[in-house]
């Protein structure tokens, strides 16, 4: 139901993102999805990759602060209106989404999201028989 996401503290100056990417590149780690928010001084670079544990260790060895979390990964058909339907389920249950981003795997859309109530979110996913995505 959830997958590992690595969040990295990124200062808003040139070269910091590249340093992170180079560490992952050296270890042949593939980034499946990523997002970075635009902020004045610093932001959080969030990535989903194929080898999260290895990536996290490598970042640490290279002095880069990161945290690994479980985030929800909802699988949707790649057709119009799917996201609206999915989100409506959470909305009706009073769940608030902290952040969300999406990517495509084959012809499936994947919604990565973090909510203010993990237990309730799990409940809704089960109740509404929503499909979730797993890396393996």
């Amino acid at each position: 139901m959830t997958i590992k996401q690595i969040s990295i503290f990124i200062e808003n100056k040139s070269g910091t993102l590249l340093k992170v990417l180079n560490v992952l590149k050296e270890a042949n780690i593939q980034i499946i999805a990523s997002t970075i928010s635009d902020t004045v001084e610093y932001g959080i670079y969030r990535i989903i990759c194929d080898k999260p544990t290895e990536a996290s260790n490598l970042l640490k060895q290279n002095g880069i602060s990161s945290i690994t979390n479980d985030v929800f990964a909802i699988e949707l058909d790649d057709t119009p209106g799917q996201a609206a339907t999915a989100i409506q389920n959470f909305s009706e249950a009073g769940i608030n989404i902290s952040y969300m981003y999406s990517f495509l795997v084959g012809c499936k859309g994947i919604l990565i999201m973090r909510t203010n109530d993990t237990d309730k979110t799990q409940e809704i996913i089960k109740l509404k028989k929503m499909k979730t995505y797993d890396l393996a």
Partner: peptide
């Protein structure tokens, strides 16, 4: 400096 990345939540930072 941040001691460690302690959150994935921008609001907490």
């Amino acid at each position: 400096e941040l001691e460690d990345m302690f959150t994935d939540d921008y609001a907490r930072l």
